[in-house]
Nucleic acid binder design. Structure first.
Length: 188
DNA sequence: CCAGACGTTGTT
DNA sequence: GTCTGG
DNA sequence: CCAGACGTTGTT
DNA sequence: GTCTGG
């Protein structure tokens, strides 16, 4: 899935998207995140249906059921701007070990949905590589896919971008308040 | 008909 | 154990 | 996603 | 708001 990510490339974000951001090595739900809809916009991570009296905190939406679920009706497509994300792998001892997924710092565009309350990231079954760590992953879109999604609400497997690298990282990232480059440092 | 849920993750 | 906050 | 709180009373 | 369960 995707419950924690990074956006650290200040320069690339300013050049490609025209927005000044502050590097964040530990973006957590409820943070304000950068989306393209397709205009750049800051919005809380966590979506609640407009009709929910008591707010629901939906940080992900399964693509498999997206079209059936009332909670996701009346949301609009967007792209969530990131340059990496974290997944935790359960070890034998039921210990959870964090891994960092990235494309050498390049900007990643995750498929998202939003409404006036916030934003959620679409997930799918993991690619075989990623499934070593976890069985769900965010949907990453290539260029054609980004346009199809935000302009036509059209999402297709051939638009998924599954080229990715990953490495084990230290436990620093576990604490939601800990935002530091050491979060993405490989474990030696 | 009204009341109550409506989601994901993972875990059992 | 389960919910809330970040 | 993980970490941290989770209750009441009254008082500051 | 809309769907499901009773």
């Amino acid at each position: 899935m995707c419950g924690r990510f990074t956006l650290t490339t200040e320069k690339a974000v300013e050049e490609k998207i025209g927005v000044k951001i502050k590097a964040n090595y530990n973006v957590t739900p409820s943070h304000s995140i950068l989306i393209l809809e397709p205009k750049p916009k800051l919005i809380p991570w966590g979506l609640s249906p407009v009709w929910a009296k008591k707010s629901i905190n939906l940080i992900n939406a399964r693509i498999e059921t997206f079209y059936e679920k009332p909670a996701f009706a009346n949301t609009l497509p967007c792209l969530v701007v990131a340059n990496g994300w974290y997944e935790w792998k359960k070890s034998n001892s039921s210990e959870k070990l964090p891994f960092y997924f990235h494309k050498d710092g390049k900007i990643l565009y995750m498929a998202g949905i939003f409404n006036e309350k916030g934003c959620a990231i679409l997930t799918k079954e993991s690619s075989s590589k990623i499934s070593y760590v976890h069985h769900r992953q965010p949907i990453l879109l290539n260029k054609a896919g980004r346009s199809a999604w935000v302009n036509e609400s059209n999402i297709q497997p051939e638009h998924y971008n599954n080229e990715i690298h990953f490495r084990r990282v230290g436990l620093f990232v576990n604490s939601p308040k800990f935002n530091h480059p050491i979060c993405i440092e490989p474990i030696s």
